[in-house]
Design a protein around this nucleic acid. Structure first.
Lengths: 226, 226
DNA sequence: TAACTTCTGTGTACGGTAGATACAGTTATC
DNA sequence: GATAACTGTATCTACCGTACACAGAAGTTA
């Protein structure tokens, strides 16, 4: 993956036939496939076929599949939001919820953003947005501010991944429940926690709980630094 | 992926030749490939070749590649640890650090554990271990206890992923730094945080920071519930 | 208007992947 | 020793990403 591809503005050619496709159209088609059938279903052939072209035509627009995935991620997370005014806690809460919602709309994006890869402008824009919400006047060092953003983003990604895995509590119970019925005695604490857990809020509640714990911890650190 | 494969004990046959391979040996070879060259380098062909067999021999032991990856994950995270005695905070700290270390040894395991998949005995054992460390007498509901474990595991996974992405601060600066030099004015808060960040502890420090914030938040919740 | 240049889309080809099937060789039990 | 069970290999299909050559379209220039 070349960094220039995501960041450099591409010169639009004058000569030759007009391109029938565009990077946006290709990314849209690929995102639609991934939304419907998962990232594994995204292939050059499939995306090209959905657009009514042969797969090789895509290589006129993209160097390869890695670039397509990078473009899909940028398309999926969208432009960084404009946060409502407020204190750092309100800002980070809103930011985390919006990021969580964006990942929920495109759960495959979590799996597409692991490992070493260049960050696109939108992804960096989301980071910038959170750092702006945190402000400069807090008693945190630069490294700590970056860490806070990483923890919050990790929390959102984590719960999207869980939400993708179980879709609903019913499926979760079917998957783990079967195992627990047979080997439950090996996991007494897990069994206790699960039987005690009524089918309730689900992932949204789990997300909110974790988010509030993280922010509580941040608040206690900041007030200690006063 | 069938759940039975990870959980059911396989009947050892009496007749016929002794199997030359074993699931353990196959998993070890696959883990070695992934450790050295990443998860993408793991193919049936490659693993079989490393063992000195043809790829179809592996299908005598495994139904398919999905099961191989599931086995690799179980092998990589290892047996759940025995936590030293202590309060819930010490227990969860130790648990998180051990999980972080395990993932650091096999960073590809983070990417291999996204999406819907059955959990193996070791993975469930780690969860059980953390829940045991949290104890039953805390003032948390079962759902909250599960959420705590999820947040901590997500934090560890998140930072492993970051560590994998940049390996060291130098490479990070080379990747993001180049972009920041050109488009830095678009990301003032990010630039401020990064220039302020001396090359220091790196991922271990970031991990410890986030972990302490999460546990601070948990502590404040528990003490509020008193 | 005609030739030229440049870019687009397509067809073909190649090495890689996962996996199914058929078959030959080996081995433990009867 | 016979036999049944199991192992490992060779071959086949289908799909993947992508390299390359080629025909046609659309501006540019003579």
């Amino acid at each position: 993956m070349s960094v220039e591809f995501l960041w450099g503005e591409r010169a639009v050619p004058t000569r030759g036939p007009k391109p029938a496709l565009s990077l946006e159209a290709i990314a849209d088609a690929a995102v639609a496939v991934a939304d419907a059938e998962g990232l594994a279903a995204v292939s050059m052939q499939r995306v090209a076929a959905d657009l009514g072209f042969t797969k090789m035509s895509l290589y006129r627009y993209l160097p390869g599949k890695a670039e397509l995935v990078a473009l899909m991620v940028e398309q999926a997370i969208g432009e960084p939001p404009e946060l409502r005014a407020g204190g750092w806690r309100e800002a980070l809460t809103e930011w985390s919820e919006l990021l969580f919602a964006a990942y929920l709309r495109h759960p495959w994006a979590v799996g597409a953003t692991v490992g070493s890869r260049p960050l696109g402008p939108r992804e960096l824009g989301w980071m910038e947005c959170a750092l702006a919400g945190l402000g400069l006047d807090s008693r945190l060092t630069g490294a700590e501010r970056l860490d806070v953003v990483a923890v919050l983003a990790g929390h959102a990604r984590m719960l999207v991944q869980q939400a993708e895995a179980q879709l609903n509590e019913v499926q979760m119970m079917a998957a783990v429940g079967e195992v627990m019925r047979r080997h439950g005695e090996r996991f007494p604490y897990l069994a206790a926690a699960m039987t005690e857990t009524a089918v309730q809020g689900g992932q949204n509640q789990a997300f909110a709980f974790g988010l509030n714990r993280i922010l509580d911890g941040l608040e206690s650190l900041i007030s200690r630094r006063c």
